[in-house]
Design a protein around this nucleic acid. Structure first.
Lengths: 343, 343
DNA sequence: TAGCACCCGGAAAGCGCTTGCAGAAAGCGC
DNA sequence: GCGCTTTCTGCAAGCGCTTTCCGGGTGCTA
């Protein structure tokens, strides 16, 4: 029945009584086309509900207006916020965004890069910490290399530095240090740290910044004060529970991400402890929800959407020298009601 | 320097000493290729870091393994959760997901459908309520129609029914009715409803279900008890503030979405009211965060990730009769500490 | 009115891949 | 060992578009 599912440029050209070349030019405005011809083409296109085939177009050399974004899980508020920033910029550039959630599976991440490569995506953005295993990071590099050589643009956000590509880096170390200072100022001297996998630089940096600042003040942070778990709400809950199980000595809990802090708050509530009366809690990231918690969470505020915006802008911006560009973004301590002065 | 940025099938074929056709067949396994030839091809591909050009492939008729998802805003926890479900299923099918946030701009929505059409996406999924204006819905239909005729698959989640496509529909009406019953059982008789744009069927249904159930119990819900605002946290805050400004008579506030409920909770806190002691609050959706609020939010739990999973499965499943399939999903009232018995 | 530059439109060559089609090779029975 | 069937392989067409290269108008100048 249907001769061809979609109408093609040739159909349009025929309907308008011009050649496909002219139709193409009229539609894209690459070259001047006499007004009355252009109007005929436009009208024909309209009538035929013509939509250019993006594949044909890309194949013919017009490039592909898609950027690929790879993160661990879109439903995590952190990634959702960063992705939101990317989407906004992408929308302004008429770019389509292909978003892939790896669910923290390294093989999947590599597979996605490969698919994005096959798509000839204009750029690939990797958001979130890399994987613990350096082998995975290598496999990823191997996949990325040919892409870069082929003119692909890559940018990473808050990611292990082993990849030699443009990156947007939150100042994790300085942010954590600032948080330590703020908590010290409140009079805290005993801390518990709830950490994600410590092989991730994000985690390592936040812990290091926090610990170094404490040390400067002569306050030690012992290895036992740091509890490691997954980067999730439940991970935070479990880590907090573990801390509680050996008897809470700390007056303040610092979770390396807000999501973990949310789990920690839940665990504390479930154990009948009140925040900040019994113990103070601080997080990191400032995902949108934490200001609405009760108590609102003290945290290091990162400009999450901007992280994404800078990343895509970086990737889209010409880089003649092919130098590795790094855009650092500072975090700011926001004191809310989840932390209190020690009496 | 670089003769061609990427190595092509022809390069692989040449390196393996076979024709492109054979190389293609070896790589795709469409037809038997003698083992030693196949191995040579595979090895050559490996050595050349060959990645097939998805565009060429799609153009040559092999179809395109991408599904498009259009929602209002990925950074909204509701959409993030639904998208999460979609991603999981897509990953299992080796499909790439192109996610577009319209930021509630109808023109952008139509434009995205057009772009997805141009991409020859295997399916287009529309998540979230349609727009208030029936004209927009028509414009959208006009864009979708040719896509469907061309063999495209479309499914919508929680969306205005005017589109004649497969859909996944939460049972908004029944869910809201169940919530009304639960609140009545707690002894509440005076309610305030915080609504999103009422022209959206989602909102209309939730209000109707709620009101009808109250009516059955002889409890009236007057027009003035319903306050309308945007579908956001700030919208909830504003709506709640408005209710408070005319003097709170209600013993219970029902927000048509959790996100609005979060705003309402914040507004109540800012006004020095305590929940549920002074007033009970209930929401709808059960986005993941609400169980961790203090107090945890009473709400109608929708299986958010499943909403997405069903939608993509629906779109991917053959539909020989071309009938409009509707998958309804029930919500379940979850009573948490944000609602209390009326003394 | 002739001459020149300029602009516009068309023909055609691909972009990289899949896929009939047909021929070559291999396997089988007799 | 011959002819037949059954695999396998290569040729070539073509997916829908962009773009280079030209030829033919057009408008301007002399």
């Amino acid at each position: 029945m249907q001769p061809r599912p979609h109408s093609t440029l040739e159909d349009v050209a025929k309907a308008a009584g011009v050649s496909p070349a002219t139709a193409s030019r009229a539609l894209n405005g690459t070259t001047q086309v006499r007004p009355h011809l252009r109007d005929r083409v436009l009208q024909a296109a309209e009538e035929l509900a013509y939509t250019p085939n993006a594949h044909a177009r890309a194949l013919a050399g017009a490039g592909h207006r898609t950027v690929g974004v790879i993160c661990h899980d879109v439903s995590d508020p952190y990634f959702a916020a960063v992705a939101g920033g990317i989407m906004r910029v992408a929308g302004d550039h008429d770019l389509l965004v292909t978003l892939a959630s790896t669910f923290r599976d390294p093989e999947r991440e590599v597979a996605y890069v490969s698919m994005l490569r096959a798509e000839r995506a204009a750029a690939i953005l990797l958001i979130g910490s890399g994987f613990e295993n350096p082998d995975w990071e290598r496999a990823l590099s191997a996949e990325l290399e040919p892409y870069l050589k082929g003119g692909g643009r890559v940018a990473v956000v808050s990611r292990h530095r082993s990849l030699r590509v443009d990156s947007v880096l939150p100042e994790n170390r300085a942010g954590a240090a600032a948080m330590a200072r703020a908590l010290l100022d409140l009079g805290h001297r005993r801390f518990a740290v709830l950490a994600g996998p410590r092989t991730l630089t994000t985690v390592a940096d936040r812990i290091a910044g926090f610990r170094d600042e404490l040390r400067k003040a002569g306050v030690p942070l012992r290895a036992a004060d740091i509890v490691e778990n997954t980067f999730t709400r439940d991970g935070g809950y479990a880590a907090m529970t573990q801390v509680l199980s050996r008897g809470l000595e700390a007056t303040c809990v610092f979770a390396v991400t807000d999501v973990m802090a949310i789990g920690a708050l839940a665990a504390l509530r479930d154990h009948g402890l009140s925040v900040p009366a019994d113990v103070s809690v601080a997080g990191f990231d400032d995902i949108p929800i934490v200001r609405d918690l009760a108590p609102p969470l003290t945290t290091v505020a990162l400009p999450l959407p901007q992280l994404g915006e800078r990343a895509i802008e970086l990737a889209l911006t010409e880089n003649p020298g092919r130098r590795r560009r790094i855009h650092r973004m500072a975090g700011e301590v926001v004191l809310r009601a989840s932390t209190a002065k020690v009496l």
